[in-house]
Simulated scan of single mutants.
Amino acid sequence: MSCVTPSWSVAMKKNQLRVNEFGLIERFFRPLAVNNPGSASLQDDCATLSVKKGYQAIYSMDTMVEGIHFFKDDPADLIAKKLLRVNLSDLAASGGHPRGYLLALCLPHGFPLKWLENFSAGLQDDQTKFNVSLVGGDTTSSNGPITLSITAIGEIPKGRVIRRAGAMVGDDIFVSGCIGDAAIALKLFEEIGRAKTLKHYPSLYNRYILPEPRIGLGKLLAGTATACIDISDGLYADLNHICLASKVGAKIEMGAIPLSICATNIIEKNKDYWESVYGGGDDYELLFTANKDQRNVIENFASILNISISKVGCIQSGKGISILDQFGHVVPVRSFGWQHF
C-alpha cells in the first residue's frame, strides 16, 4: 500500500488556491461521474438511477469526521477509499450489489486543491475496483473539521435483503476473515505512535486504514443467512445489534474467534489486547447467522471466494451475549464497542 500522497496537514502548508463550488465539481468530481448517464455530468440538482426488473434499490449512508474517523495526517486518497468502502460494506451486509453513490463534502475554508486531487484519485481507483460510480452530491465550506459523507446505492432481488432481525435460536454465528486487526492497530497508535505501528505492524495498519468490503460474500449470503451485519462498532457491539433486533441471545467461543498471525503474537504477549478483538471495531468483516443445515453451503462460499469463514458461536434464547473461554467460563467484558454518543 502506498502512503506517499500528501496528507491534509502537509498540503495545508502549501499554496491554498481558492476555487468556487462549480469549479471544484468540474475539476475533481465530474470525471468520477462520466460513466453514469443518470448523473447528468453533475450539472443538475437530481440524478436518476434505474434498477433491473425484479430488483429493488437499497441505500446506506456513513459519515466520517476528521479527528474521529480518520487522522489529520492520513493520506487523502486513503481517506477517500475508506469512506467509499465502509459504505459498500453496509450494502454487502444486506446482500446487495453496489450501483452508485452520492458524495457530500464539508471542507474548511482555504482547502488545498492538491488534497482534493488526491482524494478524487482515491475514489477513482476504488470506483474501478468495485465497478461503481458517482451520481451526485454536495459541497460546502465550514469553520469546522473536514466532514465527509457518502450515500451508497445498491440493488438486490426483491425480497432477498438480509436484515438484522432474522436470527433464530439454534442458528450458527459466523464471521468472515480475521477479527481485531484494525482495533489492535488503533491501540498501538496510542501506545507507540502511527509511524512505529506502520513500521513494525504493517498488516494491522493496513487493515485499519484500508478495509475490504465483502461484497461477493454478501451477495452469496442473500437467501442463506438469517441475519447479517458488518463489524464496524466491534464484534460484541454488532452481534448485540443482531440480538436486540431478533430478540435473542448469543454465545461466543473465545477460542473460535479467528485472529491473524500478527494479532495472535501480540495477544500472546499481552492478553489485554483481547479487549480490542471483541470490543474494538473497524474490521468491516461480515458477521452473520445461519441455520445449522447451511454449514456445507457456507463452507463452499468460503472456497468459491478464497476467504476464511469461521463459526464462532450460536444463537440462544434469552437476552445478552456470553463470551466463553476454553474452560467454558464466562469472560468479563469491559469494552462493549464503539459508541457515537
Rank of each mutant, 00 (worst) to 15 (best):
I146L: 12
I146R: 08
I146C: 11
T147N: 02
L148S: 08
I150K: 02
A152S: 13
A152I: 03
A152C: 09
I153K: 04
I153P: 01
I153Y: 04
G154L: 01
G154T: 01
G154K: 06
E155T: 01
E155N: 06
I156R: 02
P157D: 09
P157E: 13
R160S: 13
R160C: 02
V161N: 02
V161C: 07
I162T: 10
I162L: 06
R163A: 09
A165W: 12
A165S: 15
G166W: 02
G166A: 08
G166V: 04
G166K: 04
G166Y: 00
A167V: 01
M168Q: 15
V169S: 11
G170I: 10
D171V: 03
D171F: 04
I173Q: 02
I173V: 14
S176Y: 01
S176T: 12
S176Q: 00
S176I: 02
G177T: 01
G177N: 02
G177R: 03
G177Y: 04
C178V: 12
C178Q: 11
C178H: 12
I179G: 01
I179R: 05
D181L: 03
D181C: 11
A182I: 10
A182T: 11
A182K: 07
I184N: 03
I184P: 05
I184M: 05
I184Y: 00
L186P: 05
L186G: 10
K187N: 14
K187P: 01
K187S: 14
K187E: 14
F189E: 11
F189V: 08
E191N: 13
E191H: 10
I192R: 00
I192C: 10
G193I: 08
G193P: 07
R194C: 13
A195P: 08
A195E: 15
K196W: 07
K196N: 11
T197H: 11
L198G: 00
L198H: 12
K199M: 15
H200D: 15
H200L: 15
P202Y: 09
S203F: 11
S203T: 15
Y205H: 13
Y205T: 07
Y205I: 02
Y205S: 08
N206R: 10
N206W: 15
R207H: 13
Y208M: 12
L210W: 12
P211Y: 08
P213K: 03
P213D: 04
R214V: 06
R214I: 05
I215E: 03
I215L: 12
I215S: 02
I215K: 04
I215D: 00
I215V: 14
G216C: 09
G216M: 02
L217T: 06
L217E: 08
L217W: 07
G218A: 10
G218N: 06
K219D: 04
K219Q: 15
K219I: 14
L220Q: 12
L220I: 10
L221N: 03
L221T: 07
L221G: 01
L221D: 02
A222H: 06
G223C: 10
G223D: 07
T224K: 01
A225W: 01
A225L: 06
T226K: 04
T226W: 05
A227E: 05
A227Q: 08
C228G: 03
C228A: 12
I229K: 04
I229V: 15
I229R: 05
D230A: 10
D230C: 10
D230G: 05
I231R: 03
I231D: 03
I231W: 05
S232Y: 04
D233I: 11
D233P: 08
D233S: 14
D233C: 09
G234N: 07
G234Q: 08
